[in-house]
């Protein structure tokens, strides 16, 4: 069974277990960038409107500022555009707010968190990745490299890994019904693949079209269900009974 068809990062730990982390692809990264970019944009928009609400004569206030204050303000605005990325990556464990929303994280090639230098390199390289427009160079680089790294990542030795939200409750959920069910006499133990198959079917079943739900349920019952035809017919009588049987079958594996 192929466990990781998507690109991944292999990490060798001192505990002698190989970690395999899924790598975030171009879609995740573009979305995260969009979130960050619009965050910055709306921050300045809101700041501007609040400022104009509080102060009627914007230009006057700006000119009344002392020269050094004014210089610092403009340099500060410029620096936020560049520092935003590095500061949030260093302080929030490799995640800008956008990356946090998308559940992706910057790590070094050995899986450890990024430091100041790596983060600075990869974010300064946005200047080149952006060329000729709208991150075209970065997109080409991400499409060509195996682990979807843009030029800045190549220079910094970093990449983005994806964090999935995995629900373990489905393994331990109690059977919903107590109706008497035909237990397969001398049922053979299920393999982990079968358990996984049945559980993923059960978690998706409420969203399936009725006939698909029926068909998939039937096939699963044929795979894991009772051998004799009579018991099988009883199980297949309705979708509810089929699923109740499958759930009980998996839970019976305890």
């Amino acid at each position: 069974m192929r466990s990781a068809p998507t690109p991944h990062l292999d990490v060798a730990t001192p505990e002698r277990v190989a970690l395999t982390l899924p790598v975030a692809g171009i879609g995740y990264r573009c979305l995260a960038w969009l979130v960050d970019a619009s965050l910055l944009f709306f921050f300045w928009l809101v700041a501007y409107f609040v400022f104009t609400l509080l102060v009627s004569d914007v230009l006057g206030v700006f000119q009344a500022l002392s020269g050094v204050g004014q210089t610092l303000l403009v340099v500060g605005v410029f620096a936020t555009q560049w520092l935003y990325w590095t500061v949030s990556e260093v302080f929030f464990h490799g995640q800008t707010p956008g990356k946090r929303v998308l559940g992706i994280r910057v790590v070094r090639m050995d899986g450890s968190p990024v430091g100041v230098y790596e983060s600075a390199v990869r974010n300064l390289c946005r200047a080149v990745d952006f060329l000729p427009m709208l991150y075209a160079a970065a997109c080409v680089s991400m499409l060509l490299t195996r682990q979807h790294r843009r030029l800045g990542d190549l220079l910094a030795g970093t990449l983005l890994v994806r964090e999935e939200r995995i629900d373990l409750d489905k393994y331990t959920a109690a059977p919903a019904t107590s109706a008497p069910l035909p237990q397969g006499t001398g049922a053979r133990p299920l393999s982990p693949e079968d358990v996984e198959l049945v559980l993923s079917f059960l978690s998706r079943a409420p969203g399936l079209a009725p006939e698909v739900r029926q068909r998939l349920g039937t096939r699963l019952v044929e795979r894991v269900g009772p051998e004799d035809a009579e018991a099988r017919a009883a199980v297949l009588a309705s979708a509810e009974r089929t699923e109740a049987f499958l759930r009980a079958r998996v839970q019976g594996e305890r």
Binding site: G111, L168, P192
Partner: peptide
């Protein structure tokens, strides 16, 4: 024993996070 299941993926991720916070630069 459970290669390719969600448990495997979950443990991968959990250990990845723990590894990152224990072996910090």
């Amino acid at each position: 024993f459970y290669a390719g299941t969600d448990v495997h993926r979950f443990l991968n991720q959990l250990c990845g996070q723990a590894y990152a916070s224990i072996y910090q630069p």
